[in-house]
Computed example of a mutant assay.
Amino acid sequence: MTEHIWHYRSTSGHLTGTDLTGYKVEATDGRIGRVDEHSDEVGDAYLVVDTGVWILGKEVLLPASTVVSIDPEARKIHVDRTRGQIKGAPEFDRTQHLGDTRYREQLGVYYGPGTPFGGPPV
C-alpha cells in the first residue's frame, strides 16, 4: 500500500492551512525549485514544484511524505530525496496527472516503502 505517502510526517512542522506557495524546496544535495501548488487534503497531500532552469522549467510532484521539515521564517521546505532521485521520478504533466490515479500509484511505488533511496523497488 502506498497511501501513507500522501500524508505529511508528524515531525515535518506542517500546519494544515498554511500556504506553502512560493516556498523554496531543498533536496538533500541542493535546491530544486519553488512550490507552485500544494494540497493539504487528508490522504492526498502533495507539493507541485516548479524546477525553473534546473530541469528546463519542468514541474515535479512530490508526495507530502518526502517533506522532512518546513521553515516558515525562511520560507523553505526540506525533502528527503536527492536532486537525481527527484529528476528520475515519473514525469509530471499538470494537465494529465493531478487527478490520474495510475500516476499517483506510480509515484507511490517510486517514493514509497521498499525504496530506501528512491526509484523503483529493489
Rank of each mutant, 00 (worst) to 15 (best):
V53Q: 11
D71Y: 08
H4K: 10
K76V: 14
I55F: 14
H97D: 11
T66Q: 08
I55E: 01
L61S: 00
I5A: 03
K76I: 10
D19Q: 05
R94W: 05
H78V: 15
W6P: 00
L20I: 01
P121L: 12
R31L: 07
T82W: 07
D29R: 02
P113R: 06
H97G: 05
H78E: 13
A89H: 00
F117R: 08
G114Y: 05
T82E: 07
L98D: 00
D93R: 13
V68T: 11
P113L: 15
L56S: 12
G108A: 05
V48Q: 04
T16G: 06
V68E: 09
L61Y: 01
E73S: 10
T11Q: 09
R102P: 04
D29H: 03
L56R: 15
D36L: 14
K87V: 04
L47H: 00
P90V: 07
R75H: 06
G52Q: 09
V53H: 09
G17K: 01
G43C: 03
V35P: 06
G118N: 06
W6I: 12
A45I: 00
G33P: 01
T11L: 15
A45K: 00
H7A: 12
G22D: 14
V42T: 13
V35A: 01
H97S: 05
V67G: 00
V122N: 06
D80I: 12
E105T: 13
K87Y: 13
Y46W: 12
G119T: 10
P113E: 12
D44E: 09
F92P: 01
T2L: 13
V122T: 08
E26I: 13
D100F: 09
H38C: 14
K58N: 06
G30T: 10
I32N: 04
L107N: 09
V60M: 10
T18H: 07
E73G: 05
R34M: 09
I70T: 08
P72L: 01
G30S: 14
L56M: 13
P63G: 06
R9F: 08
D40F: 02
V48T: 09
P121W: 12
P72Q: 00
Y110W: 14
V60Y: 01
T28M: 13
G13H: 01
Q106G: 02
V109N: 02
T115D: 06
P121H: 11
G112Q: 05
S10Y: 05
D50K: 12
G88Q: 09
G114I: 08
G118W: 03
I55G: 00
T18W: 05
L56H: 13
E73C: 01
D50N: 11
Y46M: 04
V67A: 02
G112R: 06
Y111Q: 07
V122M: 07
Y23E: 03
V35H: 02
T2C: 08
H14F: 08
